[in-house]
Design a protein around this nucleic acid. Sequence first.
RNA 1: CGGGGCGUAGCGCAGCCUGGUAGCGCACCUGCCUUGGGAGCAGGGGGCCGGAGGUUCAAAUCCUCUCGCCCCGACCA
Length: 582
Amino acid sequence: MRYSQAFIHTLFEAPKEAETPSHIFLLRGSFVYPIAAGLYSLMPLGHRAVEKIKRIIREELDAIGGLEVTMPVVNPAELWKKTGRYFHIGDELIRFKDRRDRQFVLAMTHEEVVTDIAKQFVRSYRDLPVMLYQIQTKIRDEARPRAGLLRVREFQMKDAYSFHPDFNDLDVYYPKIYNAYLRIFARCGLKSTPIEADSGIMGGSGSHEFMLESVNGEDHFVLCPGCGYAANTEKAVGMKPERTPSTQSPAREKVHTPGVKTIADLAGFFDAPQESFLKTVAYVADENLVFAVVRGDFNVSATKLGAYLKAVHLDYAPEKILSGKGLNGGFLSPVGIKGVRIVCDSAITESALYIAGANEPDMHLKNVLPGRDFELKESADIVEVREGDRCAVCGKADLELRRGIELGHTFKLGVKYTAPESMDVTYLDGAGEPNRVVMGCYGIGVERLLASIIEKWHDESGMRLPASIAPYQIILSQLGNQPEVVAMAERIYSKFGPVWELLFDDRSESPGVKLKDADLLGIPVRLVVSRKLEKSGDVEIKIRQTGEVRICPEKDIEATLEAIFRELEPSMENLPYMDEKA
RNA sequence: CGGGGCGUAGCGCAGCCUGGUAGCGCACCUGCCUUGGGAGCAGGGGGCCGGAGGUUCAAAUCCUCUCGCCCCGACCA
């Protein structure tokens, strides 16, 4: 392809809305073009790169028996009402009516549609297991799109769904997907870290997120340097250092604390460590008032609390509700409260004294003893893990907090969508008995993966794309327009253009422009033809990833390129594979 | 949805405070010239100053309201 015909329009300066490297270089390289917040066109270069990613995904999923399908993006609302998601999901799900006033949604995933397919066609155990996948547009009306392609409202997603005769079969299949994910990301040039994720109703180790460590990521996870335990902070559990038990049990005592509300201020006021306070946070869980009580040195994890309560909606209690009960934020307490469900964190025990709110303005209580002064009825892990907490798995090392981009998610769904109250999908086993189909689902955001690759692979000049992803493998830069130089460049182009993905920069631009553009676009190998090189019959070959430069006679180009691309192949060894059962 | 910032040519910006016929750099078009790190000279095209109201003889500039975009937070099946 000739550069002059390739519809490439690079920008010298990045549009000011771009702040993260991937966003800046995707715009500057004319890989993408924005049309509204979180909505992008993929321009020819971006399109080619995305197609490369999709090909890798297809190869790896086909290798484990996946079957690609295409499903409608417009779904009847009826289907989504069956599974209940029509009601549970908020404004992120776009709902609309057609000309005949029928309700529809724009699919943000395809569990409903694919499960409907399974319901229709899976009748016998002979049809199982089966894995269907799609690489298609998904629509999510995100509250806040950000960072270019990292979080958008319309995007291509690879979604895979596996159907199994029982949980055991799902457990057998799961490592295949898990390992395919590791290979997919490795082939894209990324080291992914699988972490345990919040798996909601399933519990256990039924869900993994594949993270790319990145300062521009929006997800947090913890990593144990001792045992390798890695988990989303929404799920991660750390050990909670015990307080020294109190030997006495003095009566509780009311203290005037005018305007002192935060734990930090209280710690100063009482001259006591933060862990000696009870922090009471009021939530409304599905319309019921709940007090979450945690030790002062911890923060409530809304995710964990919500999971414990099995709440569909969980939010901070509005001031109105509290004042309606004569309560006052900042002085809340589990002591002496009636008609409110109280959930305490597991770190709170009956063996130590605390300072707590008094449920009246400007007052706190000293010498509060859990169990004596309030009932310690419900206790669960409801706090956010902290950097430096001792790992609860190995108990030997302290957890480190990391930031990352979620590249993919694997999830043992179980019977959430096949249950009688949902889509109700069964098959007949060998004995002719009906059995419930068990599901897994597995997603990868395709454009996000491209952005992640650039987050990982760039320098100040531009992208440094892995050969597996780059829209073109080679850029041939002709510097100078002397007849001999042109002839040599054309000769090389006509020879290699048909066999390699080669972009021939035939523009009559100055050398500086051509070289800068080559760097910006991140093409893995740059071939330069110039007057000086032409005289000795050589070309220059530069590898973008490493910066290595080789001078090579024209006749040796082919062999040299082949050797270089072999070297650029990513290694599939030493990935943290999950054991595959027989 | 809360907090903050920004809308002037394709991109980056000045002009606004102190109203008076819209400018700079890059990009783009023509010609000459040049070719190893974003050249040079000459000529040229392109803007309803986000939109709507208002104040004024006169509004990019002042006032009101809106819409859009970005960042932080909340949210994220």
